[in-house]
Write a protein that binds this DNA or RNA. Structure first.
Length: 367
DNA sequence: AATACCTACAACCGCCTTTCG
DNA sequence: TCGAAAGGCGGTTGTAGGTAT
């Protein structure tokens, strides 16, 4: 098979940005004649362009049915959902977004959505929690613990300690998140900012568990985790989590607390009744984050068929997709038809070695 | 004010698949 | 059935505009 690259033989053909005059010629020609053979079109239309270039310009920019402008939230969510299902099949994804081209979606993914997922601790390729973030954490913590020997290291230990604190902060929030997502009903699921390291922990513990590194014990600081497992996929049996219990709390916002004090509170919370913890209350004491905190699992997307592959994990801020009426996606595609939408959707408690999670927290406590 | 750097997006490149004589 | 042409796709690059130094 094989063929010579388009226009390779014609070195004089123009490249680079299209001028308004060229656009006009192309639009007028296609308006009158249709595009026909793209290879012959440039000559017929009076353009010194490669046919391929003409096709791209038309399909990606000049086509009358192209929707210009920024992507809506619904479109954004739909892209993430579709990418989780289809991967980099931009043309397939584009067919579900009326007026959007594959190129436009691809660019938007690379410049916006990919970074957004990364910032939420989600691997944009697998749509699962990132596992790479924890790789350097032991070294980070070890370095932070060397504070007394700071003069021996050519490192900015203050910066390292800050990073370690930030890591702890996110780990602890993530732990809460997992427990909350397992114990709290979807409508009032925990709203916690910052899931990066949590997702990493989950990934790391999953990996460690599968490798037999971590123990099988499912006791977490005195809490029998098997009790939590009974709620998997069945939120009807959950005790209510009322807003009253949230608003009546007068404790300081967790987001304003130091990692250490956070840890103390979490320890006491785990030993007691997690459901009564204000940190787990929706819209509670300043923890609500419109950007990051809407990823609680819903009952609908937790009840996946056992025969179905595990749903991919996608951005946490798309829960509207699961609660609103079908979004504006083209071709009748609605968010409700797409896979689970939470960062932790599809994660079964049985698959999470909570002992491993806790062990990592112990490492931090030992600091 | 000049320069360097960053970001977003349009456009290109090369490979693969499909179509057609 | 074969092979060339054409179309399609995904990855990458180039460029323009904005921002920081």
């Amino acid at each position: 098979m094989g063929r010579s690259p388009c226009c390779e033989q014609d070195a004089d053909v123009k490249k680079g940005p299209w001028t308004p005059e060229e656009d006009k010629l192309l639009v007028e020609y296609i308006g009158k004649n249709g595009h026909g053979s793209w290879r012959r079109l440039p000559k017929l239309a009076g353009l010194n362009r490669c046919g391929k270039s003409c096709r791209l310009r038309w399909t990606n920019y000049l086509r009358p049915d192209i929707k210009r402008g920024g992507f809506s939230d619904d479109e954004e969510r739909l892209i993430i959902h579709l990418h989780a299902t289809l991967g980099n099949k931009w043309s397939s994804i584009a067919t579900k977004l009326k007026g959007r081209t594959d190129n436009e979606i691809k660019n938007y993914w690379n410049t916006h959505l990919r970074k957004k997922l990364l910032s939420q601790g989600i691997d944009p390729v697998t749509h699962r929690p990132r596992t790479d973030l924890l790789a350097g954490l032991p070294n980070l913590l070890a370095a932070a613990n060397l504070g007394g020997a700071a003069h021996q290291l050519p490192l900015d230990l203050n910066a390292i300690k800050l990073q370690a604190d930030a890591a702890k902060f996110q780990i602890l929030q993530g732990l809460l998140r997992v427990l909350a997502s397992t114990t709290a009903p979807p409508p009032t699921a925990a709203v916690l900012p910052g899931t990066d390291l949590m997702t990493s922990i989950l990934g790391a513990t999953l990996a460690a568990n599968s490798a037999g590194i971590l123990g099988q014990q499912q006791q977490l600081a005195g809490v029998d985790l098997s009790r939590l497992g009974q709620y998997n996929g069945n939120y009807d049996n959950l005790p209510p989590l009322t807003n009253d219990s949230c608003t009546q709390q007068t404790q300081p916002a967790m987001s304003s607390m130091s990692p250490d004090s956070l840890l103390n509170r979490i320890s006491s919370g785990i030993s007691g009744d997690m459901l009564g913890s204000p940190e787990l209350c929706h819209g509670g004491d300043g923890l609500s984050s419109p950007e990051l905190g809407q990823g609680g699992p819903s009952a609908s997307n937790m009840t996946t068929s056992p025969m179905a592959p595990p749903p991919p994990m996608v951005a946490a801020d798309d829960h509207q997709c699961n609660t609103n009426t079908p979004s504006g996606g083209g071709d009748g595609m609605s968010c409700e038809q797409t896979p689970a939408s939470s960062t932790f959707d599809g994660l079964n408690l049985d698959d999470i070695d909570m002992e491993g999670c806790w062990a990592m927290t112990d490492i931090l406590l030992a600091e």
